[in-house]
Design a protein around this nucleic acid. Structure first.
Ligand SMILES: [Mn+2]
Ligand SMILES: [Mn+2]
Ligand SMILES: [Zn+2]
Ligand SMILES: [Zn+2]
Lengths: 177, 177
DNA sequence: CTAGTAGTTTAGAATCATTCTCAGTCTCAT
DNA sequence: ATGAGACTGAGAATGATTCTAAACTACTAG
């Protein structure tokens, strides 16, 4: 029912009774080349905003690149124990202002932060309703196509200007099930 | 391109260049009969939980039924000026515990509350990135079918037990555009 | 090299949505 | 009527996040 078809993190799943083939991928690990390119992009975004790409900011971007999922303030504290909390928050605010980082609200009281999709790729989230953990997943082209058509309709019918969308799945993560 | 086909709040939209016909509806206004049935259900949920359906709780449910969108604490205060804020919050917490109300985080700092989908119907949200307003929309069957297939795949492939999903659209509402 | 300007860092204080406490009130079954 | 348990509301407390102010650093013009 579940068949690994490529590297360790790609599957094709055929749900019984459904014609649709659902393809699911976790976001892939970044190559060193990609990390460098992202750092360069971050550099440019900050410069355009009149800000510098300092060590503290770079350290936070590194955490985001390494964990490959939306991180909470405690994730950052764990990874960078020497970085003061107020600095972490300010860095995150600056990076958001420079359109490098986006913030998302989950199921618990803690905000999560991730790189904007312009620097990574469009994806969605699995939210654990028990521990709050957030996991990135890339959705199949078919789903994206359907959703995109849907959003076009929304924009006109509701007098609403659609900018982006999110598809989140709530449930229990593998460690909380 | 946009054709009204029924009552004031239903459209069929045919996006150019897409075969998919996207149908969009706002959640319909409730009939008096439906309001009564929902109140009865709320009554049962609370009783099952060993709680009473008091005036304060009923007033909050009325606000949810009337506004037909996720409400913030200030929406409730505006509708029920005499209800103390701490009571409103406690009522909302109790109603959540009794599985009558659910909470959602939006784009601003304020939580929103709505009736659970078991008491209303499955739907999605338009979130204004400027003023934070949340609007309910019902999505087309085709989209729901595609998403459901997708979620089934997720559950297996990630070791994640999917319980529910949300599809939210971010953008500018008609008054903020 | 040297001072000026402007961005950066951080400890700690402040903010404020939300939750908690507790004393008083109400309901209902006995 | 009475006791147990639920309900209410004013105010205090919590805690994630933001703000402040003072010291620091990188870059640049002279
Ligand atoms: Mn998508
Ligand atoms: Mn749906
Ligand atoms: Zn979990
Ligand atoms: Zn708006």
């Amino acid at each position: 029912m579940k068949a690994k078809i490529g590297q360790a993190e790609r599957w094709v799943f055929r749900p019984p009774g459904l014609a649709v083939v659902v393809e699911l991928m976790r976001r892939p690990v970044l190559t060193e080349q990609e990390r460098v390119e992202i750092h360069d992009s971050v550099q440019r975004c900050l410069t355009r905003y009149g800000q510098r790409y300092t060590d503290g900011r770079r350290a936070i971007i590194e955490v985001l690149l390494t964990l490959r999922r939306p991180v909470s303030i405690t994730d950052i504290e764990d990874a960078l124990p020497q970085l003061p909390r107020s600095s972490a928050y300010r860095h995150l605010a600056d990076l958001q202002a420079a359109s490098v980082v986006s913030r998302l609200a989950g199921t618990d009281d803690f905000a999560r932060f991730e790189l904007v999709e312009e620097l990574t790729e469009h994806h969605h989230h699995l939210l654990c309703t028990y521990c709050g953990r957030v996991t990135d997943v890339v959705s199949p082209v078919e789903l994206e196509r359907t959703v995109t058509g849907y959003l076009k309709g929304l924009a006109k019918a509701e007098g609403f200007i659609a900018q982006s969308h999110r598809i989140d799945v709530f449930g229990l993560c593998s460690s909380c099930r």
